[in-house]
Nucleic acid binder design. Structure first.
Length: 549
RNA sequence: GCCUCCGUAGUUCAAUGGAUAGAACGAGGGACUUCUAAUCCCUUAAUGCAGGUUCGAUUCCUGCCGGAGGCACCA
């Protein structure tokens, strides 16, 4: 639709004697009463033309009216000199038809078709808790993957896990001292001891070395157990959240290559300093970071280079996305800067998405101090609320539906805002199930689905319709919203749009009786178009659609 | 100290340089013998401060104030 409008505008502007300015915008006015699209060309050209913008706008509008495409019902000049377009009933009706025929493909595009994309996210560490930070990362990573997939890319999901390194040594040390502790608790215990107790610190450093060497049978055994315990818990979580990974990368598998890559480039890219090997980022306005410590062991930095090698080997992609919390933004720049020098072709394909952090009202979460909210506890709490809601409504309580609703509530609260912003999670104040929320979107979808099932016949857009058309005037925008979310890697545009769409559908539902109503046939087609759009939109967000709730 | 990000109704969030700054929660009022009231309708209230660029600034630039993150052997 935008294409037709731009062409029309361009022609009219040229007929009046000017060139269509670059950077002219075609936007949706804040209010539907102002029309469906607004152009600011007249405002931009007014100065050059030496004319009053309104006058110029009227001239352009006049030329458009000479040969007005059938998709446009009305051209008006408003405000300071905007040219407003109102779309025609013809266009709105044919959009409904298009939505119904495209079904699950409605809203998708082919921007990335033929491209391979790898998305790395979630990245929980074995031996530590899967906390709400991982939940946030998973939610954003999954939505990002689906956006990319909806652009036609061959998309693979990757999960990178730190199964070696000091955190593992700390957990194992904790477990050796106190068998009855859970792995998360053992880690917190070890981390505390490491900071407060010199002997413990030495023992942990020793364990860390032995893990790399695989030289101590007792440690090896604990290590294997811990890995296994963690992985099975993680797998349950992924299933619950609706993520399925194609590749798992482990620090234990990538550190050697990372280490040797760094060693090979000492003197050229990296430098020795105080017994460690560092990368000096100052030349690029960054800071110095240690890639290999003075024990000769790789830090996260060197491992990340090894990871890049492993990814390249396993799935050569055109875009390689890594999703992390914003605390790693600066870190990542340094690693990327080093990567540009040691593997330049690959570095060009790397894209870092950093999201805000889940914080508690008391401040930053820390698994070192044990001050964490686990994903499991959060989901369980929210699920309880959903079950309570079902009970109050007198519906039969169903675990599976309560789970879908709980996860929708959580995902919505993560995805509703700009990706970079922190979220303060207050366990005292429960998540919303009312108003703009995950369940609100699911509920609207469920209502539509339920009507369509009950009606027992198909709708038809050729049938007579009522005068109201707000819903239609939002529906056609879905592909535009998707494209914007894809371009900016910002799922929240989809959330905002779906919320507005659901609200519009609910108003429509309250006003209009669909089954048995005056415009039943047309309204069934409209409800179907809404249901498809909502389903596709929720899929993009990784939110499931229950058939009843 | 240096670098990065962020300051919008009481609260949590929106707003590709555009029109009267939108929602939700909260508060107050109303709507279920009618397709699911996890809903709908009405009322309430905001751009941290000071300059600048622009026909037009929540948005871009500068300074200040406030918050978060990062800055050598953690991830």
């Amino acid at each position: 639709m935008q294409g037709i409008l731009v062409e029309t505008l361009k022609r009219a502007v040229e007929e009046v004697g000017y060139t269509y300015p670059t950077g002219a915008i075609l936007e949706h006015p804040a209010e539907l009463s102002h029309g469906d699209y607004a152009s600011n060309v007249a405002l931009m050209l007014a100065k050059e033309a030496g004319k009053n913008p309104r006058e110029l706008a009227l001239e352009i509008a006049h030329h458009i009216e000479q040969r007005q495409p059938k998709e446009i019902a009305k051209v008006e000049v408003a405000g300071a000199g905007f040219i407003n377009f109102t779309l025609s009933e013809y266009f709105l009706r044919s959009t409904i038809e298009r939505i119904i025929s495209e079904g699950g493909k409605w809203g998708s595009n082919t921007t990335l078709s033929g491209k391979k994309v790898l998305v790395e996210y979630t990245d929980p560490n074995p031996f530590k808790e899967f906390h709400i930070g991982h939940l946030m990362n998973n939610t954003i990573g999954e939505a990002t993957s689906r956006l990319v997939e909806f652009a036609g890319a061959e998309t693979k999901r990757a999960n990178y896990q730190g199964d070696v390194g000091p955190h593992v040594a700390k957990a194992i040390w904790g477990k050796m001292k106190q068998k009855e502790l859970s792995w998360g608790e053992a880690y917190a215990y070890g981390a505390k001891a490491y900071e407060e107790n010199e002997t413990a610190k030495k023992e942990i450093t020793e364990i860390n070395k032995k893990i790399y060497e695989e030289s101590d049978e007792e440690i090896n055994k604990l290590y294997r157990e811990g890995r296994k315990d963690s992985f099975s818990l993680f797998e349950e979580m992924y299933a619950l959240l609706g993520t399925s990974f194609d590749f798992y990368f482990f620090e234990s598998e990538v550190w050697k290559e990372g280490l040797s890559l760094v060693r090979k480039n000492v003197g050229s890219v990296f430098a020795k300093s105080d017994g460690a090997i560092v990368y000096r980022g100052e030349a690029d306005g960054l800071h110095t970071r240690v890639f290999v410590n003075s024990e000769g062991l790789p830090t996260y930095e060197a491992k990340d280079l090894g990871l890049a090698l492993a990814k390249k080997e396993k799935y050569p992609s055109d875009i390689s996305i890594t999703v992390t919390a914003s605390e790693q933004t600066e870190y990542f720049k340094v690693v990327l800067s080093a990567m540009e020098k040691v593997m330049p072709q690959y570095a060009k394909k790397v894209k870092h998405i950093s999201h805000g952090m889940m914080r508690l009202p008391s401040g930053k979460m820390s698994s070192r101090t044990g001050d964490v909210v686990t994903a499991e506890v959060l989901i369980e709490n929210v699920k309880e609320i959903a079950l309570k809601k079902m009970e109050d409504a007198g519906i039969e309580k169903e675990e599976e539906i309560a789970e879908m609703v709980a996860i929708a509530a959580i995902k919505y609260s993560i995805l509703k805002q700009t990706t970079g912003k922190d979220i303060i999670y207050d366990p005292e104040r429960s998540l919303s199930f009312e108003g703009a929320s995950g369940p609100y979107l699911q509920y609207a979808h469920t209502r539509a689905h339920s009507i369509l099932t009950k009606a027992g016949r198909e709708g038809d857009t050729k049938s007579e319709k009522g005068s109201e058309d707000t819903l239609e005037r939002l529906l056609y925008r879905f592909p535009e919203v998707v494209a914007r979310a894809q371009n900016e890697y910002e799922p929240h545009y989809v959330v905002t749009y779906l919320t507005e769409l659901a609200s519009s559908f609910n108003s429509f539902y309250a006003k209009e009786k669909i089954i048995g109503g005056e415009h039943e046939v047309y309204n069934l087609a409209l409800a179907r178009a809404f249901q498809i759009t909502m389903q596709n939109g929720l899929w993009l967000l990784g939110i499931k659609t229950p058939q009843r709730m």
